[in-house]
Structures are given as C-alpha cells and as structure tokens.
C-alpha cells in the first residue's frame, strides 16, 4: 500500500517536473496563435532560453541572472519571428523552421565559443531545490495569461487580431504591433521554459536537450483548444507520458517505445481532435 502510494507520488511529482517546460511553451503557443501567428519556432526559442541561461549563469555565478537572460533570449527570437511574420509577411511556417535552425545551430556554435567544448556545457549554478518556484510560476503564468486574454482590453485586442486583424485596424488600432508584442511575450515564455530545462531541472546545456518539446507544445495548443488552461492541461497530459517513461523504466517495455510515447500521444491527439476544435480564424494568415 505504501509502495503504491509512493509510486503515485513519484509519478505525480515527475509529471509536474516534466510538464513545466511544456506548459511554458504551450502558453507561448497560445498567446502567439491567439494573435494570429503560428509559432513553429517555439523549439528554437526554448533552445535559446536554455542555452543563454547556462551561458550567463556559468560566468556570472547567478542563476537568477541566467534565467532572466534566458527569458530575454527567447523574447528576442519571438520579436524576430513577430517582425518577420508581420512587417515582412514572411510565411510563418517557413520562418519558424528557419528560426529553429538558427537557434539550434547558434547554440551549438556558441557552446564551443563560450565553453570551449562541443556537445554539452560545463556544469553551472542552477536552481537545484528551488526549481519548484518555476513549476509554481508555470501555473501562475497560465492563470495570468487567462486573465490577460479574457479580462483586459489588450487581451481582447489580441483575440480580435487572431480572428480578424482588419477589424482591429478598422477600430483604429495597429494589429501588427499587437501581434509582434504577443509573439514576443510568447518567446519570453518559451525562453523561460527552456531556462527551466537547463538550470531548473538540470545544471547544464547539451545539444538536443529540448528534444522536440517545442513541437509537442504546438500539439498541446491544439489539444487545449487555444486556451491557457486547456493548453496547460494538455501539457500535463504529455508530461505524464514523459514521467511514465521513468516510472516504467524497469517494466520490460523498451525504453525507446516509452520515449516515443509523448510524440505518439501528440499524433493521436492531433488526429482525434482536428476538425472538432476551431482555430482562431486568422491563425497563420498574414495581415
């Protein structure tokens, strides 16, 4: 009985740990897509946040500075995508793919420059026991984003931009600026998610550590019907699959099958849900 309880506790805590970066990234996807910009670059923004947090935390010895730097790095990539998607009317999918390459390649390049070694950074100061703060903050962010989107004038504007940016312009507002700000905030959230991975859950950056979480977050956005709480729920669901991976390590199920599970779950969710949920009408449509 005690054993069962401790297994459940283990799975619950692992789920929270694994869901946290997904929650940040999924919230980033929600705010971006609610404003009308599909953010394929979430993965790259997480990478930027994860690497920058380590690159700053190491030399300065301050994990807080590292996290702030990670947020800023993600936000800068968000700003980049936001400007590309609005002012330059770049195809959002292709631009996001490009941003992923830039961030992933850039992190690998900078890793050699900063730490003098490829593959992984040296160990740096991390949050260690205090990483629960970022877990709690993820849930607070979900609530905050919900309030922002549904109760504030700016949130109404964001939602209007995602549905019909021309209506926003007709009301005398600038939909491009709203979209850029929304995607930049999204980038900051994704950067924070990345920073959590590198200096919250671990204490280093290694190439490939984000491992597609940015893409799973995209599925979580759809699964969560483009709402902050829905996306958070979906992120927890995908986090559970990641947690099960560890919990069932000795169960005889091949490890690779367990690793593939979150992705397969996302595929199934994608197939099962599409058509039954309605995306923002102007999602992915340039203004």
């Amino acid at each position: 009985m005690n054993d069962a309880a401790s297994v459940v506790m283990l799975i619950v805590s692992l789920t929270l740990i694994k869901a946290t970066p997904l929650i940040y990234a999924a919230l980033a996807g929600v705010i971006s897509e609610r404003s009308g910009v599909i953010n394929i670059g979430l993965e790259g923004m997480m990478v930027a946040g994860a690497f920058t947090a380590v690159a700053v935390s190491g030399p300065t010895g301050s994990v807080v500075l590292g996290i702030i730097a990670g947020i800023i790095a993600g936000a800068l990539f968000g700003l980049f995508l936001g400007i590309l998607a609005t002012k330059f009317r770049v195809d959002q999918i292709v631009a996001g793919t490009g941003i992923n390459l830039i961030a992933i390649g850039g992190a690998a390049f900078a890793l050699v420059l900063v730490f003098g070694q490829p593959g992984a950074s040296k160990e740096v100061p991390s949050l260690e026991g205090a990483s629960w703060i970022l877990i709690a903050l993820a849930f607070a962010s979900a609530a905050g984003l919900h309030g922002l989107l549904y109760y504030t004038p700016w949130g109404l504007r964001v939602r209007a931009c995602g549905e019909n940016p021309h209506a926003v312009a007709a009301a005398g507002l600038n939909p491009l600026r709203t979209r850029i700000i929304a995607v930049t905030i999204g980038g900051a959230l994704a950067g924070l998610g990345g920073a959590y991975l590198s200096v919250g859950e671990l204490n280093l950056y290694s190439d490939g550590m984000v491992a597609g979480r940015g893409f799973i977050a995209l599925a979580a956005v759809i699964f969560g019907r483009w709402t902050p709480f829905g996306a958070t729920g979906a992120a927890i669901f995908f986090g559970l699959f990641e947690a099960l991976q560890f919990a069932l390590q000795r169960s005889g199920i091949p490890n690779e099958a367990m690793q593939a599970l979150p992705y397969i779950a996302a595929l199934v969710a994608l197939a099962g849900l599409t058509g039954r949920v309605r995306a923002p009408a102007a999602d992915g449509v340039p203004y």
């Binding site: 590309l84 330059f88 770049v90 490009g98 961030a103 992933i104 999602d283």
Partner: peptide, 28 residues
C-alpha cells in the same frame, strides 16, 4: 555556424510566398 546560416537563408527566402497554404481550410 553553417546551421545558423541555413536558417537565415530560409528566413530570407520565406519573405516570398511559395505556395498558397491550405491553412485556411484546416483547423489545426
């Protein structure tokens, strides 16, 4: 560094519209 350059090349070229995306017809 080459990966970064590939990414930038993609971004620059994406400024032109290649294909009419089918996004308007899909919900995801």
């Amino acid at each position: 560094a080459i990966r970064v350059i590939e990414g930038l090349v993609i971004v620059v070229l994406a400024a032109r519209r290649f294909v009419a995306t089918q996004t308007e017809k899909t919900t995801a």
